[in-house]
């Protein structure tokens, strides 16, 4: 097995075993999808209008929840030094970690979203648009989040600072993602898919390099 796959599978295993990853994010996402209707009221027509945006914000927040530990856990227990000295470059390591985070968080969130959209009474086409937009857009959340995680990995309160620096960067993903749901509901197309896909692709390709630099700086500190 290549070092890349070794790191990827280890991170996947960790996310399943240590309550840090997949399950917590899913629970958080589901709770957001439950609490909003409880606050707004059970009017399914109103909920359907807001559903896309709320579920997208919920998914982005849920994915960020486990992101602060992406590098931090390995930094604190010394694993990150060993990873840095391994045959795998830090860029490769960052990419493996981003991929593992998406597989353990973004993908399950995407798969859960059609079930949660039942709470908002979304129509069939809107559910498909939401699921598709999350499938396209959540890699961007993992990728941009990884940059934030690499910058805050040595901070004690990194978990609080991370959303503050990452969420502004995720504005395009949330806007175009929720936009795809709106397009499905109204029938008007503005090409949100294209923008979302471009943003997600660019983020996924560039962020390993930036994140690796962040890790390097923190290891040297």
């Amino acid at each position: 097995m290549t070092p890349f796959l070794a790191l990827l599978t280890r991170d996947l295993r960790l996310s399943v075993r240590e309550g840090g990853g997949a399950v917590l994010a899913l629970g958080f996402f589901a709770l957001v999808a439950t609490l909003v209707p409880l606050g707004v009221g059970p009017d399914l027509n109103l909920l359907a209008k807001m559903g896309g945006g709320i579920l997208w914000v919920g998914a982005a927040l849920a994915a960020l929840l486990s992101l602060d530990r992406l590098f931090q856990a390995d930094y604190e227990d010394g694993s990150l030094d060993l990873i840095a000295l391994s045959p795998l470059s830090l860029e490769g390591a960052a990419f493996a970690k981003i991929a593992a985070h998406w597989l353990s968080t973004g993908l399950p969130l995407t798969l859960l979203s059609p079930i949660l959209s039942v709470f908002f009474g979304l129509s069939g086409s809107a559910v498909i648009a939401l699921t598709m937009s999350l499938a396209i857009g959540t890699p961007a959340v993992s990728a941009v989040g990884a940059i934030g995680a690499s910058l805050t990995l040595s901070l004690r309160r990194g978990g609080l600072i991370l959303p503050l620096i990452v969420l502004p960067l995720l504005v395009p993903a949330v806007m175009f993602g929720a936009g795809m749901v709106l397009e499905a509901q109204t029938g008007l197309t503005n090409g949100a898919v294209g923008f979302l896909a471009a943003f997600s692709l660019a983020a996924s390709l560039l962020s390993p390099f930036v994140a690796a630099q962040g890790v390097r700086l923190n290891l040297a500190g």
């Binding site: 309550g19 399950v23 917590l24 629970g27 589901a30 439950t34 409880l38 709470f119 009474g121």
Partner: peptide, 25 residues
């Protein structure tokens, strides 16, 4: 005619599910 309504019993069952999840986590 609908998969879900925000009825009292359904909602509290859902909340109960989250309580279990939190406990396990």
């Amino acid at each position: 005619g609908t998969w879900w309504v925000w009825d009292g019993r359904l909602t509290s069952t859902l909340v109960q599910f989250f309580l279990y999840l939190g406990y396990i986590a």
